[in-house]
Simulated assay, not measured.
Amino acid sequence: MNWFFLSLVTALTQAVKDTFLKSAMGRTDPTLSMLLYSAGAAAFLWVFAVGSPEAVLTAAFWPLLVLAGALGGVTFWLYGLALRRGDLSLTLPMLAFTPLFLLITSPLTLGEFPQPGGVAGIALVVAGAYVLNLRERRNGLLGPVKALVTNPGSRIMLLVAIVWSIGANLDKLGLQASSPALWAASVYTASALALVPFAARRLRQSLRELPGFPYAIVAAGLLESVGLFCQMHALPLTQVSYVIAVKRLSIIFGVLLGAMVFREPDLAHRLPGAAVMVAGVFFIAVFG
């Protein structure tokens, strides 16, 4: 199947998933929310894995799984904090920087470097995050950047983007050591287990705050499993940075959903940034 279509499906599911998660976190501890979410995604992914062809594991599978699971647990913990503390339209744009960081991590870990057209597309995706806050230019050339990083949720999400630029490469290595379905289910199971120490610190209080079972988190887990299943099948078909750049179209959808569902302001000022991101995706798909 076409890698671009698979990556686009991932982007759509990511945006809707983030909307469900933010809705749930208005009532639930973010760490417990992310634990339930990752465990739910793992359960759905194991359903996909059971119906997939049997995978042959290489010796690198287990070390990669331990490392990717540990990074995944830390990342989900940070991700939940970011969504809790900031608007979708301010936190999600920070993930556009993941493809930029991949320009450093992918050559080091996989020996991959995109073609000039792909570099231009990635640059446009990152530039779109700048344009999203272009009205802050009145505070200087770096005003749009400062507008993002002065928000606590945005600062945390920038850390997520950095860690994900490493994790995406580990995913590709994990796919080579197993199979898309098995790796996706295994890494989310490992990530959920890595979150347990974070959630255990205030588990009793978190459970008391839980207003019945959070079905929004179940929906988020299902959407994540579908998106990740598509992503894992897209990664072997092209370079990691291209898949992640297209996946970052979730930022556009997230900004729109943030305005429609949570009534977040400044949609008119952020749509031009979304258009720049679309142009970047076009460069990646056509010239990358």
Rank of each mutant, 00 (worst) to 15 (best):
G153I: 07
E54A: 15
S89R: 08
L175H: 07
W164E: 02
T10S: 14
A275L: 15
A245P: 00
I166L: 13
G128C: 05
G111Q: 10
A127F: 15
L142V: 09
T189P: 06
V74I: 15
G140A: 04
A184L: 12
G121Q: 02
A219T: 11
G73Y: 00
D29N: 13
A194W: 01
N2W: 05
T238H: 00
A59Q: 14
V196K: 04
P107T: 10
V66N: 09
D171L: 11
L142G: 09
S7V: 03
L81T: 01
G280N: 09
S178I: 11
S206T: 01
C230G: 05
L108Y: 10
L195D: 01
A59E: 14
L67K: 07
P214L: 08
V281F: 09
L92F: 00
L102H: 02
S106T: 04
A42G: 12
F198L: 00
L142N: 10
A274E: 04
I252C: 14
M34T: 05
T28I: 15
V226M: 12
L12I: 15
V255S: 00
G121C: 06
S225Q: 11
V160P: 02
G221N: 07
V149A: 05
L170D: 02
V56L: 15
R263G: 08
L67F: 12
G117F: 11
S165E: 07
A11Q: 10
L257Y: 14
W164R: 00
R263V: 10
V145Y: 07
F253V: 14
G117S: 13
F101Y: 12
K172L: 04
A68I: 13
F61C: 02
L81G: 01
I244F: 07
A200L: 14
G140N: 09
V243M: 04
R204D: 09
Q115V: 09
F97P: 00
V160H: 08
W164T: 00
S206Y: 00
L222M: 15
L88Y: 04
G288T: 04
P236S: 06
T109V: 15
R270T: 10
V163I: 15
P30K: 09
G227L: 06
R248Y: 06
G153F: 03
S165N: 06
T28E: 03
T109N: 02
G73W: 01
F97T: 05
T150C: 10
M277K: 05
L256V: 15
T13Y: 10
F97V: 07
L78G: 05
F76G: 01
A82N: 03
M25V: 06
P93W: 08
M94S: 04
L110R: 01
P114T: 13
L124A: 09
G280F: 03
A120S: 08
N2P: 14
T13Q: 08
A42H: 06
G128F: 00
V281A: 15
D171F: 09
A147D: 14
S186R: 04
V196T: 13
Q231C: 11
H233W: 02
R248N: 06
I166Q: 00
V286S: 10
L8N: 06
K17S: 14
P114F: 02
L271G: 12
R201D: 01
A220F: 02
M232F: 04
